[in-house]
Computed example of a mutant assay.
Amino acid sequence: MEKLDSIIFYNIDKAIRAYRNFAQRQLKANGFNITIDQWLIIKAILENPGITQHEIGDLVFKDNASVTRIIDLLVKSEYINRNTNSEDRRKTDLDVTESGKEIIQKVQNLIVNNRKIALKGVSKEELQIMNSALIKISTNCLNTKK
């Protein structure tokens, strides 16, 4: 029987979880009052004007309830605004406030440093191969209708 540490998907998940925990600890240690998920959602809104909550969930791999909860916290923290859409009252428009833009800028250097630490000893060639393989895996899984 194969061991867990020989299963590629176990190792991918382990690496992702280790990185997220590391990155969250770094945010806290550097005095930032924001989570990785909150940072991702602010970035998603900044990079995709007019994005819906459902689209945000797809982009950051979160269910609708989680996205709603995180957005509620971001509104409360005054990092984003939520306004009723002028054309369709069932929809909401999300936009990033100045303090939201500031926190993204302030955290950016830390994020870059976190990636540097996490990727220490990994060559550019290894990164390219890994990225290519991960894209193929995603494509294979997304294109399977079974």
Rank of each mutant, 00 (worst) to 15 (best):
N64L: 12
K91V: 00
R89G: 00
R69L: 12
Q128R: 15
G100I: 09
I104W: 03
S99L: 06
V107K: 02
N131V: 11
T97A: 09
G121V: 08
S86F: 05
R82P: 01
I117G: 10
L59K: 14
E47N: 10
T84H: 00
S77T: 01
K91G: 00
D72V: 05
I71W: 05
E47W: 00
I56C: 00
R89V: 02
E125A: 11
L73N: 08
Q128I: 15
G57L: 04
K116F: 14
E98K: 12
I56F: 05
E98D: 11
N48F: 06
L119S: 05
L73D: 10
Q53L: 08
L94A: 03
R90L: 07
G50W: 01
D72L: 05
N83S: 03
I41F: 09
D95M: 06
P49H: 03
S77G: 07
N85W: 11
H54V: 09
D88P: 02
I45W: 12
I41D: 06
V107S: 05
K106Y: 04
I117F: 10
I80V: 13
G100M: 04
L46Q: 07
R69S: 15
L127A: 09
N83T: 09
E126C: 06
I103Y: 03
L94V: 09
Q128G: 09
P49E: 11
R89L: 04
V112R: 12
L46T: 15
I56Y: 00
R89H: 02
L73S: 08
Y79G: 01
K76W: 01
V96G: 04
E55Q: 14
G100L: 02
A65H: 11
D88F: 04
R90Q: 07
L46E: 08
I129G: 03
N114S: 07
K43E: 15
D93E: 05
K106D: 08
H54E: 11
A118E: 09
V96I: 15
Q108K: 11
S77C: 08
R90K: 14
L127P: 00
K62S: 08
E87H: 10
D72T: 09
S77E: 14
I45E: 10
G121F: 02
E98M: 05
K62V: 04
N109L: 07
V67F: 00
N109M: 02
D93R: 00
G57A: 02
V107L: 06
L119W: 06
T52A: 01
Y79S: 01
N81F: 14
K91S: 02
D95F: 06
T97D: 09
